[in-house]
């Protein structure tokens, strides 16, 4: 699609431009910005001890464990989703165009709600689930309890699986969109010159996908970092994921716990803001077709 060029605002149009922008700016300021500011205000201690909740928070081993666990789950699910998604996109790209249409079901998990993905993971990966049953039939495990605990495991395996099932197809969709513009002859030439598949993938495909990979990494990481549903359904009770920690402290804790919960929420918000700034800097110079958001 051709984009028509932007022009400067003629002085006569200035009031109308402001008028057109203001409702959305007001909405953003009230709900999003207002919400973030309200969280900061609710996280402060009594006068003279304004930052006491933060001191308490960073002395709390449960919180530090939660923070580390959340960063780890977000990082692992993002990296695995990116790896599977980009390799999947390359596999899809190599298939003749006539077959590509019959492979589009890979988009299914993108529209499946997180709740549904979590349920599917439960059915497949519980100790009495389908995967465990298949392994038993194949003689790989000899009883249910030799199947590793994946759901509610402190290593976050169930959550990581759920996120990868949901997010790898999303990466695949984006990466395939980029690869569709890569000339086939690059692949043919590399093959003629004797490059193997992995070399072609890393030296030709990955550089083309790099802008998308960078953006998707931030989007996926932030989503995983701040999402509630999957940790609530598949996460361990110790260590908790940060959003669940905030929620349970706030609603099931004492009055004082509410302030620390809000302080933890502010930490979550700060991580998000830093990554939003990084994201914005990486996409500013990109054309619309190279941007995800």
């Amino acid at each position: 699609m051709t984009a028509f060029p932007r022009r400067r605002i003629p002085p006569s149009a200035r009031p109308s431009v402001l008028l057109r922008l203001s409702p959305l700016i007001a909405f953003f300021a009230l709900i999003v910005l207002g919400g973030l500011v309200a969280a900061v205000l609710q996280s402060l201690g009594p006068p003279g001890h304004r930052f006491y909740p933060y001191d308490k928070l960073f002395m709390d081993d449960a919180f530090l464990g939660t923070l580390g666990h959340t960063l780890y789950v977000a990082l692992v699910s993002t990296v695995v989703s990116l790896a599977i998604g980009t390799v999947g996109a390359y596999l899809l790209w190599r298939v003749p165009a006539s077959y590509q249409r019959s492979l589009q079901v890979y988009r299914l998990p993108i529209v499946l709600p997180h709740l549904v993905i979590a349920f599917v993971v439960m059915v497949f990966f519980s100790r009495s689930g389908i995967v465990s049953s298949v392994l038993y039939r194949l003689g790989i495990i000899d009883e249910m309890t030799s199947f590793p605990r994946i759901l509610f495991a402190p290593n976050g395996a169930g959550m990581i699986l759920a996120y990868v099932i949901k997010e790898a197809p999303f990466v695949m969709l984006l990466a395939f969109g980029v690869l569709a513009r890569v000339p086939r002859r690059l692949h043919t030439t590399a093959k003629l010159l004797g490059a193997g598949e992995s070399r072609i993938f890393f030296t030709i495909m990955v550089p083309h996908m790099a802008p998308i990979i960078n953006q998707a990494a931030i989007i996926l990481f932030l989503y995983t970092f701040g999402a509630f549903e999957i940790p609530y359904l598949l996460g361990a009770s110790k260590p908790q994921m940060l959003p669940v920690y905030v929620f349970s402290r706030y609603f099931h804790g004492s009055w004082e716990d509410r302030t620390t919960a809000m302080a933890a929420l502010v930490v979550l918000g700060l991580v998000a803001l830093i990554l939003v700034v990084v994201y914005t800097r990486t996409v500013v110079r990109r054309s619309a077709s190279e941007r995800i958001l």
Partner: peptide, 16 residues
Amino acid sequence: LLSPVLIPAIAYAMGI
């Protein structure tokens, strides 16, 4: 204006 898509909703929803 696009940032709410990146900022986890919990961050402003619990505040508001």
